[in-house]
Amino acid sequence: MSYDIDIKKVRRNCYRQSKVRGEFMLQIRVPGGVIDAKYLSFFQHIAETWGNGEFHLGVRQTISIPGIKYEYIDEVNKYIRPYIEEIEVNLCGVDMVVDDNGYPTIGARNIMACIGNRHCIKANIDTTDLARKIEKVIFPSDYHIKLNISGCPNDCAKAHVSDIGIIGITKTEYDYDRCIGCKKCVEACAHHATRVLSVEKGKIVKDSCCCVGCGECVLVCPTGAWTRNPKKFYRILIGGRTGKQTPRMGKIFLNWVTEDVVLGVLKNWEIFSAYVMNNKPEYIHGGHLIDRVGYNKFKEMILKDVKLNPEAMVAERVLWAETEYRSNFNVKPVTQR
């Protein structure tokens, strides 16, 4: 069969081109990677009815269904309408009109998250809940952004290699009288984290400057001398990415900020992207946009009208460390400037 397909249009609809001519893989959003188990049969039905019977656990936590022939896309889009309605509108509160045309954009990618404190011993935050709140802010959008959320600085969800990475951190508080000086926290911090704890006069002294906020001291403390401040805090990393040319780790942009700040920053993301690209969305990810205008402009725009909490810390500069697959990759001929 001969096909004449606008690949980019189909991609925008969240169908990715297959090596088999005329076949596509649908990427179903699962914000934060957690949804009701009842949807498994829904995915199964799509895979067995229109796909090739298999499904892929997408690396960005989408449920991906390959082998869908182009001619079935309309049918599939009709079928996933209630799913989009339930997940995007009802669960995440996304402000969008759901119709029979499937996902409206692919720009803002599925939000990845670790399981967070709904299950994990180490987690400091409810990553699922945060992912759903952020979904409402960033979706749908044609501006490309990859956003990963980790419940603790262990960063299992790889916030360090996403355009915007969010890590749940905790401000631990120390009860001098409850401490027995057993040094279990000192050992845990040295083993898991940044060695900020030491013993002085039978009690614990903390070098707060370098505390990564992981909460290992709380986990190991036998007497409950270390506890978490009930207020939730977040670290925001920016500019991380994978890729063929210049993969790099994200760098700290904000530390010890509240959820309000996180959501405020993300509200500015689309405005910033639109500014950098003159309102013409291209398939370019966030880190590159920061590179184009520079960190200072990014900071100015992304923090506009964001009220930083008193504990917040903001990066003055960002020193990127890229992996250059060609030496001096960034030194380019004048014609390519």
Binding site: N117, N124, I125, D126, T170, C221, G224, T227
Partner: peptide, 15 residues
């Protein structure tokens, strides 16, 4: 009850 002061995130401590 000491709210959210438990060993794990979002758990309480009772002492």
């Amino acid at each position: 009850r000491f709210e959210k002061r438990g060993r794990y995130s979002d758990t309480d401590l009772i002492r």
